[in-house]
Computed example of a mutant assay.
Amino acid sequence: MAITARSPEVLRYTAFSGDPDGGNPAGVVLDAAGLGDGDMLAIAAGLGYSETAFLTPPPEALGGPETARQGRAFGIRYFSPKAEVPFCGHATVATAIALGERYGPGDLLFATPVGTVPVTVTAQACGALEATLTSVEPHVEAVPGADVEEALAALGWTAAELDPALAPRIAFAGARHLVLAAATRERLADLSYDFDRLEALMRRLDLTTVQLAWRASETVFHVRDPFPVGGVVEDPATGAAAAAFGAYARELGLVPRTAVLTLHQGEDMGRPGVLTVELRAGETRVRVSGRGTRIPA
């Protein structure tokens, strides 16, 4: 891997689990000043995780002078092994945990390509750190039936295997995700899809992942996220999709206006993680929380 500027320290953290073997691993570069786009892409590709986050100096206006003086405001960019992505929840959580370990719990501000994302790092009673991000303004839109049919064909699913109570939608909370709900846990567990065909559809619809979900109870869901546009078959724990799913569940009236949802992801990959999604009445933005920990070298 040839880096034109210099060779920065690349940290490895997992998000949405306190176990290094669980959750979703992310690369974290706490000082990316001086790195070009090609450098960042080369680092992300060499690491091979679904995303790597790169911290840069904050925009002058971000968070006001007090936040800047405290050193808790940052620019941030995200790269998959194939391309830059607009927002990545798990890499945001991983970066916040890394900063929390170095500078202590507290509030952070990240200037992402899609807007400002506040994150709060707290210490749990057990000593573990947890990060809570607040999404950018979400929205949910209908998806044409022909696009749903193409997605099902790429996945090898049939329309009869969908949960009729959870209609397909495209949801956004920093990145676009097509939400499809399986009628059974068995259907969700059996994931074997046409990588190229699904990637082509996702590029046409400007999707980051396809969020596949199964509802276990009123507020508990199991989810999976194919990610072919990032060069990854499946993302183990997807914070951006979790935020989008919270907006989706609220828009469809699946949960109360104030609710806490638990999303289990990664179990079928052998990397279990837990994402907590919080909705608050009177607020449109969605909060996503999870633990994180450093992956030993």
Rank of each mutant, 00 (worst) to 15 (best):
G71A: 14
R72S: 11
R72Q: 09
A73K: 12
A73R: 13
F74D: 07
I76S: 12
R77T: 14
Y78M: 07
F79C: 14
F79N: 08
F79G: 06
S80A: 15
K82W: 02
K82F: 04
K82S: 13
K82I: 05
A83I: 02
A83S: 13
A83H: 09
E84P: 07
V85G: 01
P86C: 00
F87D: 07
G89I: 10
H90R: 03
T92G: 06
T92D: 08
V93L: 15
A94F: 10
T95S: 15
T95H: 10
A96W: 12
A96R: 10
A96N: 10
I97K: 11
I97H: 14
I97D: 13
A98D: 10
L99C: 13
G100Q: 14
E101H: 15
R102S: 14
G104C: 11
G104P: 12
G106Y: 08
G106A: 10
L108A: 07
L108P: 05
L109A: 04
L109Q: 05
F110I: 02
T112F: 02
P113L: 04
P113T: 03
P113V: 06
G115T: 07
T116P: 03
V117F: 04
P118F: 05
V119T: 07
T120L: 10
T122Y: 01
A123S: 08
A123P: 00
Q124L: 14
A125I: 01
C126G: 02
C126N: 15
C126W: 00
G127S: 02
G127K: 03
A128Y: 01
E130N: 02
E130F: 01
A131F: 09
A131S: 06
T132Q: 13
T132W: 06
T132G: 05
L133G: 04
T134H: 04
T134M: 02
V136H: 05
E137Q: 11
V140D: 05
V140Y: 00
E141N: 01
A142N: 10
A142I: 09
V143S: 06
P144Y: 02
P144F: 01
G145M: 04
A146P: 00
A146I: 08
A146N: 06
D147Q: 11
V148H: 05
E149F: 02
E149Y: 00
E149P: 00
L152D: 03
L152Q: 04
L152I: 03
A154G: 06
G156Y: 02
W157N: 01
W157I: 00
A159H: 03
A160Q: 12
A160W: 00
A160H: 03
E161W: 01
D163W: 03
D163K: 06
P164C: 10
P164V: 09
P164L: 09
A165P: 00
A165V: 04
L166V: 08
L166M: 14
A167N: 03
A167S: 14
I170G: 11
F172W: 15
A173K: 11
G174S: 09
G174P: 11
R176H: 15
R176V: 12
H177R: 10
H177S: 11
L178P: 13
L178C: 11
L178G: 10
L180V: 09
A181Q: 07
A183F: 01
T184G: 04
R185W: 02
R187I: 12
L188E: 12
A189V: 04
